[in-house]
Design a protein around this nucleic acid. Structure first.
Length: 800
RNA sequence: GCAGGCGUGGCGGAAUUGGCAGACGCGCCAGAUUUAGGAUCUGGUGUCCCCGACGUGAAGGUUCAAGUCCUUUCGCCUGUACCA
């Protein structure tokens, strides 16, 4: 047979679809396997080969599991709300709904051409009303449960485009679109209180099977720290300034305090402050910097000393100055710090610049040169003097603080609450109304979905408001509570919302009563294996784990954790070794590859090109090697006759089945394919194989190159689909060779090899090695000091 | 700065608990076939001073034995929120 993919790829794709070969069955008796890939954002430029690699991993796993008798749910959908679609809509004067439909169609066509075994009956689209109804429903539940609140926040604002920008779109303080200067603007923001779940999210990591680096990234993102809250009296105000510190035991080394420039206490006492002008000027400077810029570590600290009040160190009564500086953020801790310049480099730099005292309280460094952050004996610290273990000194200080009521132990998280509103059209409307009398009122559940109203012009409203603010019919409404006049919230949800629960909708995508049926949830949850990009392992995964934990607490889902296992694929780089991007012109379109080489070659190549978890550059000629491999597979048909096993090949077959099976489970697809290539080389060397062996070979290859394998399977007279037939099994005993070649070393240097029985004992192996003529001559006249035999590997004779 | 990761032939990459470094593929070289190109087939291909020695970013160390373990160091990539 020839590898003539144009003849049959479409044929098999149609047959899989006609026979519903890959549709999951709810409540099947078979063991369930829920494998999920990150659903794509359907962009206008279509898919690139990176998507194909991202999906091919679990595609192969899923196909193998089906052949092993699992009831597999391998779904796909579209995360279709988002800014790029809205921008395309504005630019081309097309409704985002239309743009989305067009893009989804394009993606669907591309995905189907590659022959992915998705369950196409369960496709979800986050922008459909019967999907976002439930996104809004979950949000409403959060509102009812006190997890939604409103607060002021500083946002990146482009005065020219009149839009709020993400940090990503405002790097370097310039707007990504028009390149004008960004300003920091205070704005009302809806928050989800994710910090309430910080501990649960941290503890939940203990029971899940994520790659270790993924787990660590999530732990660091949540960032739990233990320390103490300490109260400093502000003299002449009656106010206390509370700070958070991880090292309360360094309190005797505090020589000044720093507040974030935006700290509200400054405004409260502005009349007492003598240099308010200087402070306002400094604040104006800070407002120009984005958070991104403020967070760049700079040696040269800036700040202003507040004239008007001083703080009192609670442990020694010393009066110390209070500064404002932009290295302190409102968003972490309390927005103010106690500065210990001797033992914190940032405080040290600040103290040096402003000529503030530096008092050593931990011995071990040279504070004339730099801050010392290591451990050591406590000095200059009254009752803490002599402590050498920081755990003890911290505990003692907390004890003292709590006794005197000047502070208490506490924990802090790096993780911030989730800013949940965007001033955009193409997103889920936030189901809230603002009533003059009742305040914030949720839209009643029976009124969901709160539909995105039709609109012509998606340009943002005045002063960076959502486009929806321009629609009076939408904005003006009656309060669900009192029936009086009210206004709707016009902001929409961020893109993260729809993707926070989509795995639940796959389980029951057409349910109109509930987001998913409880029994089905019980059957399918958790997702057994979730694969996606490294860039989503913190934000997306933590957000969706948060939503799931919340639903679990409500009793709506049967598991606390949504994902039992998580892996991540590496990027495909352009042929130039750079990240693929339109602007660099190094993007490879999967359609072009399918046209020229066929879907099977594309599938095999993206998994063979390198380690699945690492970034690998695309290489056209390397892909041709995969084409040659499939040519040779097709060629096996002409060599196959008879049944049973070929003695010369039998062990090789069993070894290959084992290797391919294991490598799929550990996502070492490249070495699994290499094993099949090595086997086919052996078969060609041997010159023939049996029909049974051919069937075994194509069964192993089927998850990778299903079209070709189905075609060969059919040509052998089989009527049922290979994709649903049995995965080959191996006999462990037959994976071992009778004789093996082992290396022989003399004093650790390789000198030759010798063939011995696989089960030979140490004496036999060493005797065989010594019997070798070359080894014998090299050993002549030498004293043998030690003889080592590592079974199946090596003999090492240490001689002098 | 912090966190995570990576350095192996001309290239992508292989190497259980330390046990024959370079599997498999690309590329390259030679031969066969072909009017030529392409395709295909066969053989070869880490380096060198080639019956021997040297080789996994660099330098030390542990060991009978190190790509793998330890120390120091250099370079690169990714994420990032100066986190008190």
């Amino acid at each position: 047979m020839k590898y003539d993919f144009r003849e049959y790829e479409a044929k098999w794709q149609k047959r899989w679809e006609d026979e519903k070969a890959f549709e999951a069955v709810d409540f099947s008796e078979k063991p369930k396997f829920f494998s999920m890939v990150e659903f794509p954002y359907p962009s206008g430029s279509g898919m690139h080969v990176g998507h194909i690699k991202a999906y091919s991993g679990l595609e192969v796993v899923s196909r193998k599991r089906r052949m092993q008798g699992y009831n597999v749910l391998f779904p796909i959908g579209f995360d279709a709300f988002g800014l790029p679609t809205e921008n395309t809509a504005i630019k081309t004067n097309t409704h985002p709904r239309k743009v989305t439909e067009r893009n989804i169609e394009k993606f669907t066509q591309q995905l189907k051409r590659v022959g992915f075994s998705f369950d196409w009956s369960r496709v979800v689209d986050t922008t459909e009303e019967d999907y976002y109804k439930w996104t809004q429903w979950i949000f409403r539940k959060m509102l009812d449960n006190g997890l939604v609140f409103r607060d002021k926040a500083l946002v990146n604002y482009c005065p020219s485009c009149k839009v709020v920008l993400s940090n990503e779109d405002s790097q370097g303080g310039k707007c990504d679109i028009c390149h004008s200067d960004i300003v920091q603007k205070s704005k009302d923001v809806w928050y989800l209180r994710i910090t309430e779940y910080a501990d649960k999210l941290l503890q939940g990591l203990e029971g899940v099977d994520y790659l270790p680096n993924i787990k660590m990234q999530q732990e660091n993102w949540i960032g739990k720290s233990t320390g103490a809250f300490v109260k400093f009296a502000l003299k002449d105000t009656g106010e206390t300034l509370t700070v958070y510190t991880t090292r309360p035991d360094t309190l005797f080394g505090v020589t000044f305090m720093v507040m974030a420039p935006e700290h509200p206490i400054i405004d409260k006492y502005s009349e007492k402050i003598g240099n308010m002008d200087a402070i306002e000027a400094y604040r104006a400077e800070c407002a120009k910097k984005t958070e991104f810029e403020r967070t760049q570590l700079v040696k040269d600290k800036t700040g202003v000393c507040i004239e008007g009040f001083k703080a009192v160190n609670p442990v020694n009564g010393k009066e110390i100055p209070v500064y404002i500086s932009d290295y302190v953020m409102m968003g972490y801790g309390t927005g103010a710090i106690m500065a210990v310049p001797a033992h914190d480099q940032r405080d040290y730099d600040f103290a040096k610049k402003f000529g503030i005292d530096i008092i050593e309280v931990i011995k071990g460094g040279d504070i004339a040169v730099e801050a010392y952050a290591g451990d050591g004996e406590m000095v200059n610290s009254d009752f803490l003097n002599g402590y050498t273990n920081k755990k003890d000194s911290i505990a003692r200080m907390i004890e003292e603080l709590e006794k005197s009521g000047l502070g208490e132990g506490g924990v802090q998280y790096k993780m911030k609450d989730w800013a949940f509103n965007r001033q955009r059209y193409w997103g889920e409307p936030i189901p809230i109304v603002h009533c003059e009398k009742c305040g914030i009122v949720g839209v009643p559940y029976e009124e969901l979905p709160l539909r995105l109203p039709p609109m012509e012009n998606f340009e943002p409203g005045q002063g960076g408001e959502s486009p929806l603010a321009k629609l009076e019919d939408f904005v003006n409404c009656t309060c669900p509570k009192c029936g009086g006049k009210a206004k709707r919230e016009t902001d929409t949800m961020p893109q993260w919302a729809g993707s926070s629960w989509y795995f639940l909708r796959y389980i029951d995508p057409h349910n109109s009563e509930r987001f998913a049926d409880s029994e089905k949830l019980k059957y399918w949850l958790p997702v057994d294996w979730y694969n996606g990009g490294m860039e989503h392992v913190t934000r997306h995964m933590i957000y969706s784990r948060f939503w799931h934990h919340f639903l679990y607490d409500l009793g709506e889902v049967p598991t606390a954790e949504p994902y039992a296992k998580r892996t991540a694929q590496g990027l495909i780089l352009g042929p130039d070794g750079e990240k693929m991007s339109k602007s660099k012109g190094n993007v490879v379109d999967p359609n072009d590859v399918v046209d020229a080489y066929g879907a099977d070659v594309l599938r095999v190549y993206v998994l063979f090109m390198g380690d699945y978890e690492s970034a690998t550059p695309w290489n056209d000629s390397s892909m041709k090697g995969c084409k040659r491999f499939l040519d040779r597979v097709a060629g096996l048909c002409d060599m196959a006759k008879g049944s049973g096993a070929t003695p010369e090949l039998e062990t090789k077959f069993h070894k290959t089945i084992k290797k391919v099976s294991q490598d799929i489970e550990s996502m070492k697809f490249n070495t699994g394919i290499a094993a099949m290539m090595a086997l086919i080389n052996d078969i060609y060397d041997h010159g023939s194989l049996t029909v049974d062996e051919l069937k075994c070979f194509i069964s192993l290859l089927c998850p990778y190159a299903p079209h070709l394998c189905e075609e060969i399977w059919e040509s052998l007279g089989e009527k049922e689909l290979l994709s649903l037939s049995k995965w080959p099994e191996y006999d462990e005993a037959k994976t071992v060779d009778a004789t093996i070649e082992i290396a022989v070393q003399i004093s650790g240097k390789l000198k030759g090899t010798v063939v011995i029985a696989a089960d030979a004992d140490k004496d036999t192996a060493i005797a065989a090695a010594k019997a070798d003529a070359k080894i014998a001559s090299l050993l002549e006249g030498k004293n043998i000091i030690k003889e080592i035999y590592v079974p199946g590997k090596i003999v090492n004779i240490v001689a002098k």
